[in-house]
Design a protein around this nucleic acid. Structure first.
Lengths: 350, 350
DNA sequence: ATCTGCTATGTCAACGATGACACATGCGCC
DNA sequence: GGCGCATGTGTCATCGTTGACATAGCAGAT
């Protein structure tokens, strides 16, 4: 049985009352007699009435929809975790989530934002923007914008993680296991987009923590360890191939590292693959630490890593958006903590 | 500068014409004088006008929005790939995508569907439904519903893969490498949801292919190799722990397998972890094949696997939805082919 | 001179829900 | 008897866009 959706007016006619009465019953507000309530509920059930949120949105100027802008959900499982958390928080609050992957293209992202605006979403969350100016368009239109995981604009609010403290924990862990030749495998900070306010990229913080951590223990950082192509060369980032190349180079040094800290689990997969190919055992020969805790538990050996609180990132991101929508006080920035998850890829220095 | 969005009427007034003329200019239809066109375009630019798709949706009864119902995007990277492909196809066609994760709960899914209907989405794609009856609700409302990856209803159209042929390729590959003791690690077919039309689950097809493949080469299937808990015990499915347990049990047999076929890459990660723990080398001691080609390339060793065409699944899913929306002819079912991707986890039998 | 057809533009009633406002009752109380 | 207040219900403009329909000027054909 295929039927067109019933409208409020049809329900009202069937119940023998006005649309206002039906509305009052459904919204549970104002005065309604028991008699009227019964008739309305019966009519609603009989017609299988479902409110048209399009009409409601037009009338109330509030769509209960948020936009989630992603680089590309396939690039890093971190985004998947965040997207899931955002969706869960949104649904729980009666909101819907529209997704858009810009794939690293500023113009594509621009198009997505125009779509969000045309759609009159109530807020937009970014899991990495392709271009801060795009975020500004939103802010100029009066639509709340929140950045999750990294903060690249001065205008939008953000939820992120303390990357310095997180990376430092990884280094300290390795040092405490007796490692002295610890290598850093990450992206070139110069290539990563910067936080406009602090002028530091995520990778700057992690690299600084590595250097400071080494220095604090009287150790010398290892050279020549980061090169990742352009940040938005998505294939490069996701392949783990970079991790392999770095590791091949590092292990060919006269004094190869006994431990490698990779700034992303995906990079760490390349490290593990490279070591596997050359017959090195992890952690007996070389220890490896990752960052994110995305696929770490699926690797062999299970990877020790700095966990990003993906659920909290998503939930706080949505909560900030909701607060902004409702005109409540919202902090400019929330900084969460990472946690070091020690698994099987780290052990005493050989 | 925060400004409220301009309306068509405001643009019209500024341009000194009627809303109909503005509409004609924007829609590029009907007759418009050059003079009027210039004035309108200038006014559009001056007001930064963006059409309100909410109002348009109410008027046209067409929202250019599709719903994407997922089990939980975090459960299996397969869903991520499909979601990405669906989104890309939708955006290219001028559609938006709203996501909803039901997490395996039929009632939660029901709620999501009510939301989709209230929202007047033009179609809904399912990447595994929690309950076929929920899909029927949609079909009854006249909203096209398409199942992607597995077909569990009799009412909805679907795009899926030939699991029998895919699994058979995996078995044949192992046999051709000289393996004779090949184990199957998968879910209990009795627990998996069935295709209502064919009365076979995805796992039935894969298991049948395994048995037929073994028999075709005069080999005996190995016993006692599948147990996965309830299908929607999401944590169980994603953890890979099941894969470890099966492998531990299999390798403790008097005559352990020399090859293991796991019906999902995630399960295969558990297989690899178990083998790694017991010091077995892959593929020298044991060969491993997975299914899906999700994280296969990130594992050490890189996993040989039966690739699902994720992009094609998503694109065809959306294309079917679009055809249904536009009232074009739509096949009831599209069956795509898998492809065996040979990497480093399979080698000659020891 | 009249008609036909093309060009160009304006008017306005939908689409469905909302909620301010107006209008009824009926009760208790001064 | 009249007033105030609580209760209960209906009317209708509004949100912004769309497109059918009406209108009108003008060129060329008859």
């Amino acid at each position: 049985m295929v039927s067109k959706a019933a409208t409020l007016l049809e329900v009202a006619r069937l119940a023998g009352v006005s649309t206002a009465t039906v509305n009052r019953v459904l919204k549970q507000q104002g005065y309604i007699s028991d008699d009227a309530r019964q008739k309305v509920l019966a009519a609603v059930a009989a017609t299988n009435y479902r409110p048209n949120v399009v009409a409601r949105g037009l009338r109330t100027q509030h769509t209960y929809t948020i936009g989630l802008m992603l680089t590309a959900i396939t690039v890093n499982p971190l985004f998947v975790g965040v997207a899931h958390a955002v969706e869960a928080a949104a649904i729980a609050a009666g909101y819907r989530v529209v997704i858009f992957n810009h794939g690293g293209s500023a113009s594509h992202e621009r198009h997505g934002i125009e779509t969000f605006i045309a759609q009159r979403v109530d807020a937009v969350l970014f899991c990495t923007t392709a271009s801060p100016e795009n975020v500004d368009i939103l802010v100029d239109s009066g639509i709340p914008a929140i950045e999750i995981e990294r903060s690249l604009t001065e205008t939008a609010r953000s939820v992120r993680v303390d990357n310095y403290v997180g990376a430092r924990a990884a280094v300290d862990h390795l040092v405490s296991l007796g490692h002295r030749r610890i290598a850093f495998v990450g992206g070139d900070p110069a290539i990563y987009p910067r936080d406009l306010a602090r002028q530091r990229s995520v990778e700057d913080d992690r690299l600084a923590a590595y250097r400071d951590g080494m220095a604090a223990h009287g150790l010398k950082p290892m050279p020549d360890h980061m090169r990742l192509g352009t940040y938005y060369d998505l294939d490069a980032e996701i392949s783990g191939t970079e991790g392999q190349q770095h590791t091949n180079a590092l292990m060919a040094l006269p004094e190869p590292p006994t431990a490698i800290f990779a700034t992303c689990d995906i990079l760490a997969t390349g490290v593990l693959q490279s070591l596997y190919r050359m017959g090195k055992r992890v952690p007996q020969d070389v220890s490896v630490v990752g960052f994110d805790d995305t696929i770490a538990a699926y690797l062999a050996p299970e990877l020790t890593t700095v966990a990003q609180p993906m659920t909290a990132l998503g939930r706080h991101g949505f909560d900030m958006a909701l607060a902004a929508i409702e005109g409540r006080e919202v902090p400019d920035e929330i900084v969460l903590e990472t946690s070091l998850v020690i698994r099987d890829s780290t052990g005493p220095a050989p």
